[in-house]
């Protein structure tokens, strides 16, 4: 499992983004988190070379949601051989935008006193779900009607054993807000909304039947290319 946090949102465990053998002994592992509304890239830097590393800096290529470092990479003391340090890099979402493939891909350059190194990583789109993403009920109904059927995508979430209220609470801790709950023919149905940092809204219908571990998720969004990533977020949140 991941590291718990105050708001209860799930954080993916760190993985290796830059192996030491590709970066003259510098190993970087990391993950992304949204902590109380603040976006962070959380990094572990390990020196697997035989000399000291210093003068660290980081830069992002333009990306789909304008992610950019909101400050310098704070490595205040040189990194000795075999030493690991943990660094949190605050992020903003007002950097230059360029649509990436896949959508949530981020290209990063890290520099130290030895060289400049490049790697790619992917962030969970749930990191971009804002705290004020609960849509007015009237607006939800109008928007749901307004978004064409071609923009609706349907997904199955398997092996889920939460009831509707538990699922709703869990999703809310990741800024997926329940606007209405209904029951029709024995199925519990949640209507939910999400707003991304770039003001894209995603509307969802989550169906579940007591005793059936497979949920049906329908997503409606004007920018429908985000839907598969939002589905991944539902899976990640509900199963962790």
């Amino acid at each position: 499992g991941g590291v718990g946090m105050a708001s209860g949102a799930y954080v993916v465990p760190k993985s290796v983004w830059l192996p030491a053998m590709k970066a003259k002994g510098l190993e970087i592992s990391g993950t992304f988190a949204r902590r109380a509304g603040v976006l962070q890239m959380e990094l572990s830097l390990t020196n697997k070379a035989m000399s000291i590393m210093s003068d660290f800096a980081i830069q992002f290529n333009r990306n789909s949601f304008g992610l950019a470092p909101a400050g310098p990479l704070q490595v205040l003391t040189p990194l000795s051989p075999n030493q690991t340090i943990e660094v949190s890099l605050p992020l903003s979402t007002v950097g230059p935008v360029m649509k990436m493939e896949p959508l949530t891909n981020l290209q990063v350059a890290v520099k130290n006193n030895i060289d400049v190194f490049y790697f790619s990583c992917q962030y969970p789109i749930s990191m971009l779900f804002v705290e004020d993403g609960k849509m007015e009920r009237q607006v939800f109904l109008a928007t749901w009607k307004d978004i064409p059927n071609e923009n609706e995508a349907q997904f199955q979430i398997k092996d889920c054993h939460l009831n509707a209220d538990a699922a709703s609470a869990k999703l809310q801790s990741s800024n997926i807000f329940t606007i209405a709950k209904r029951n029709a023919e024995g199925q519990d149905i949640l209507y939910q909304s999400i707003r991304l940092t770039n003001s894209i809204w995603v509307l969802s219908e989550l169906r579940m039947q007591p005793g059936n571990p497979s949920y049906t998720l329908s997503l409606k969004c004007r920018a429908s290319e985000v839907s598969p990533f939002v589905f991944q977020s539902y899976e990640m949140v509900l199963k962790n």
């Binding site: 009920r137 749901w144 209405a180 209904r182 029951n183 023919e185 149905i189 209507y191």
Partner: peptide
């Protein structure tokens, strides 16, 4: 009154998607 109307609208939405 508006709230009642919205409650009903969500019920209709759920119903219409269950039995299209």
């Amino acid at each position: 009154e508006l709230e009642d109307g919205l409650d009903e609208a969500f019920s209709r939405l759920a119903e219409s998607r269950t039995n299209p």
